[in-house]
Amino acid sequence: MKLEAFKHGLALVLATTVLVGCETTSTSDQESAEPTAEQGAQTSGAAGDEQLTEQQLAEQKAQAQAEKEQSAMREVRTFYFDLDQSSVKAEFRAPLAAHASYLVQNPSAKIVLEGHCDERGTKEYNIALGERRANSVAQFLKVNGVSASQIEVVSYGEESPAVAGSNETAWSKNRRVVLQY
């Protein structure tokens, strides 16, 4: 538990370091580290307690709720992209994080990420673009702890459109990565 908290602090500092730059004085280090240490102490104390407190019940409830939400989010299996773009859109980060935590908890589970493009542009470039989209999703999952061996990436380029037609409605539905268990 201490460990967990320590990690938080570290990650926070890490983030600040990245954002602010590499110059970190030892004072600022200490400042951000202190609340972390306290938090750590509290949590580890609670874990030692054998009786179920109200707080714990609430936590369990919250967790159940969270799990429900998580599994609902895992229902999102198709992730759409902007034209010529391969970065994961903000709206899909939460569902992908849900998939990630499921995959982390079930290391034997395997997924295939299928990358797709709309019909515009050249076929071979689109195959590469489809792969980059799928890789972008794969990277996000890996960053969230999913093992590389759980993920397979295949790009179909523009060969398997979800929707037929030559208009923006169809195109926007075709620029996608499909996650399959």
Partner: peptide, 25 residues
């Protein structure tokens, strides 16, 4: 993470990975 069975695992994973994700983006 998987081997630590106690309650707040999921949110903790969420937070650590949030930072990782942030960096990733």
């Amino acid at each position: 993470q998987a081997s630590t069975p106690s309650a707040p695992v999921a949110p903790a994973v969420g937070q650590t990975s949030n930072i990782n994700s942030e960096l990733f983006f």
